[in-house]
């Protein structure tokens, strides 16, 4: 990487830090190695020879700090996922994650928009619920559908391999997401909000409608830039979700992972009500600099690392 590009990356990262220090959000650094990892079946962790996992995000450690009373915190840290390289995937990438005690999801989304508009020239970011986004591509009443209806929609729309695809309801939602929703917003800036409860991840369910979770994603040019939650603080509910994911891993014949008891303990000890978000720094940088791949903004991509 040329010095000029290194400088651009350095400037970008110091601007991120300035954003947080202006708001009195504390920078923290937590371990990259952990004895547990996310059980999310969509994420493959990298395990080290001393039986530790390279973090897939700093979420667990940061929540443990929040439970100890850290107040607002942020972290810039590498994250690792055993996944194939693509123009927007690299096994090691830079994550920006921050937590705001007392913030609602909407307040945090406003802050994400402030941050992003420092780097990307966008008038304002549109907001749409996942159900509304599906409606806009022709799928009505998403939350009342089942796997069969979604497959019928896919067949009627002539989507590729719809007939031979065997998916559960969440799988079909993912299928529509990548084949229709992401391409539809390929030239837009949009917050997708209120994911179905089955895709809540670590977000709490909406008190107004328990069929959806207070989870949002920011898409720029159809690419996921940020994923945020009104955080789930209920330890019991979190344990149930983890166990469900572990069960899914067993069904899929994936490696078992130890349950993150420390995180559950932190939630039980009283983690403050808060919202948190993770931003893919390389992706934001790529879009900000008008590049086509995140590898172009990295000093070394996984291929040459």
């Amino acid at each position: 990487m040329k010095r000029e590009q290194l400088r651009e990356r350095a400037t970008f990262i110091s601007a991120l830090r300035a954003f947080f220090s202006e708001r009195d959000i504390l920078e923290v650094d937590t371990p990259l190695l952990s004895s547990s990892t996310t059980p999310d079946p969509a994420i493959e962790s990298i395990i080290t020879t001393n039986a530790h996992y390279l973090q897939t995000s700093p979420e667990s450690f940061m929540k443990r700090l929040l439970a100890e009373g850290s107040g607002s915190i942020y972290q810039l840290a590498p994250a690792f996922r055993a996944e194939e390289m693509s123009p927007i995937h690299n096994a090691e990438f830079l994550l920006l994650e921050w937590y705001r005690p007392g913030f609602t999801m909407e307040q945090l989304m406003a802050e994400v928009e402030e941050l992003v508009s420092n780097f990307v020239d966008i008038p304002s970011i549109e907001q749409m619920t996942v159900a509304e986004a599906f409606e806009s591509v022709g799928v009505k009443d998403l939350l009342d559908t089942d796997a069969k209806t979604l497959k019928e929609y896919a067949l009627a729309m002539g989507l590729p391999s719809a007939d031979e695809m065997e998916l559960d309801w969440d799988g079909w939602i993912d299928y529509f997401m990548v084949l229709l929703i992401q391409p539809r917003f390929a030239h837009a800036a949009i917050f997708l909000t209120h994911y179905p409860a089955s895709q809540a991840a670590l977000a709490r369910l909406s008190p107004e409608d328990s069929r959806v979770a207070e989870r949002f994603e920011l898409l720029l040019n159809g690419i996921e830039i940020a994923n945020g939650f009104r955080e789930l603080t209920d330890a019991k509910e979190q344990r149930t979700r983890f166990e469900k994911e572990l069960e899914k891993r067993r069904v899929l014949n994936m490696d078992e992972v130890p349950l993150d008891e420390e995180l559950l303990q932190a939630l039980a000890s009283g983690m403050p009500e808060c919202s948190g978000v993770a931003v893919g720094v390389d992706r934001l940088m790529m879009i900000s600099q008008g590049k086509d791949t995140i590898q172009e903004v990295m000093p070394f991509s996984i291929e040459v690392a």
């Binding site: 993912d174 997401m177 994603e217």
Partner: peptide
């Protein structure tokens, strides 16, 4: 061959 992924969840190859 293009790998496409939702934010979380099932990945596909188009």
């Amino acid at each position: 061959n293009e790998i496409v992924k939702p934010g979380k969840g099932q990945a596909f190859n188009r």
